[in-house]
């Protein structure tokens, strides 16, 4: 599922949020709060360890209209890059 996304450079990241070691719904809850504080066009990098996040974070992007730029799956964690939409 990672192949559909281009690699996102860390230079594009405006806010980094580490949600390691917490379970649903906290990654979605915290990511949503973070995106709410950000300006359109800014990029959130989110780190999770709950495997459910692989489905939850794309769902968050779909439901809020924010753009999932990238997903990387490592052995024990998942990385997501989400661009705050103009209107979300």
């Amino acid at each position: 599922m990672t192949s559909q996304y281009a690699k996102v450079s860390d230079e594009r990241v405006d806010v980094e949020l580490d949600c390691s070691e917490v379970l649903c719904p906290l990654p979605v809850y915290r990511a949503s709060l973070a995106l709410g504080q950000m300006s359109p066009g800014q990029v959130l990098k989110l780190i999770t360890t709950d495997p459910g996040a692989l489905e939850d974070i794309p769902a968050l992007a779909r439901q809020t209209g924010n753009v999932l730029l990238g997903v990387e799956r490592e052995e024990t964690r998942q990385l997501f890059w989400i661009e705050k939409a103009v209107r979300s």
Partner: peptide
């Protein structure tokens, strides 16, 4: 509580 909090996080 989890579902309501998640839904609100999704903008619902």
């Amino acid at each position: 509580l989890i579902l309501a909090t998640t839904a609100a996080s999704l903008g619902w």
